[in-house]
């Protein structure tokens, strides 16, 4: 993942703004399904800022986690210390996630397409992979069943692609309301948080559209990192820079983190 050190030009790094933007988007949310890495930072920042009552659920079956250190994996005992409940993964996925009790899930991926479909399985062909990735894990189930999906990814041309090498987790599939017709219960992707801009899917086609540019970023810079012609929302805003408080908390949360990798070790 992105280096969290502040850039030499600014007072905060693009990766820090990414975490801050994700945290802000959790305002008003009750339950969030958290992954390790940047999603973990974002959810814990949200707990200290916009939504203190936010309940953090981790794939390993932990509810109400209040991790005292950054977990390197969802199987880190720091998630259990002070949590409200620890259940089996079968119960978490089968009863609670499928039961519609997860409001928001934060996901990432190696590739994403214009409808928010994600690939975390393989780069290249499945039979002769260039890179075999650790997905799906729980990602497909989470993408299908969470009330909303927020996606956190660096904006890179090799990641924002016209066509996925493999469809791991459905977003809005081939556009529009097809996921509803197929009986997919969750609301699918609502927001894509990158290091350069924010995107949503608030149009009839459920196509990813640019809604907010981070300070100093141009539409041209966005287009240069996307594998398709970027759609721009009718109202385009600028993402507010991180406040001093937000930055201080992100840095405190990151300190002592032994790795920023998104994968599970």
């Amino acid at each position: 993942m992105t280096d969290l050190q502040p850039s030499q030009r600014g007072t905060y790094s693009p990766a820090e703004l990414m975490v801050v933007a994700a945290a802000r988007a959790l305002a008003g949310i009750r339950t969030v399904f958290v992954g390790v890495g940047q999603p973990n930072l974002a959810c814990n920042l949200a707990r200290y800022t916009v939504v203190p009552e936010l309940e953090l659920l981790y794939e390993s079956g932990v509810y109400g986690a209040q991790p005292a250190r950054q977990p390197l994996s969802i199987g880190d005992p720091t998630l259990v210390t002070g949590a409200t409940s620890v259940v089996s993964m079968a119960d978490l996925f089968g009863l609670h996630l499928q039961g519609g009790l997860v409001d928001v899930a934060l996901l990432g991926g190696a590739q994403i397409d214009r409808y928010g479909n994600l690939n975390t399985t393989v780069i290249g062909s499945y039979s002769e992979p260039k890179v075999r990735l650790p997905g799906s894990g729980g990602a497909c189930e989470i993408a299908i069943n969470a009330g909303r999906v927020y996606i956190i990814m660096q904006l890179k041309k090799r990641a924002f692609v016209e066509r996925l090498d493999f469809l791991t987790s459905p977003g809005h599939l081939q556009a529009g309301t097809i996921t509803r017709q197929m009986g997919i219960p969750g609301g699918g992707p609502q927001l894509v948080i990158t290091d350069k801009a924010l995107f949503d899917f608030a149009n009839g086609e459920r196509e990813m559209q640019l809604v907010s540019l981070h300070p100093g970023v141009t539409i041209e810079a966005i287009s240069a990192e996307m594998g398709w012609q970027v759609r721009v929302a009718e109202t385009l805003s600028e993402t507010a820079a991180p406040s001093a408080d937000e930055l201080a908390i992100v840095r405190r949360l990151s300190a002592g983190n032994t790795s920023q990798r998104a994968g599970e070790a």
Partner: peptide, 13 residues
């Protein structure tokens, strides 16, 4: 093992 020893994150890295 919860309560006895921690996850050896250095080892995993």
């Amino acid at each position: 093992v919860q309560g006895y020893y921690d996850r050896d994150n250095e080892f995993y890295l």
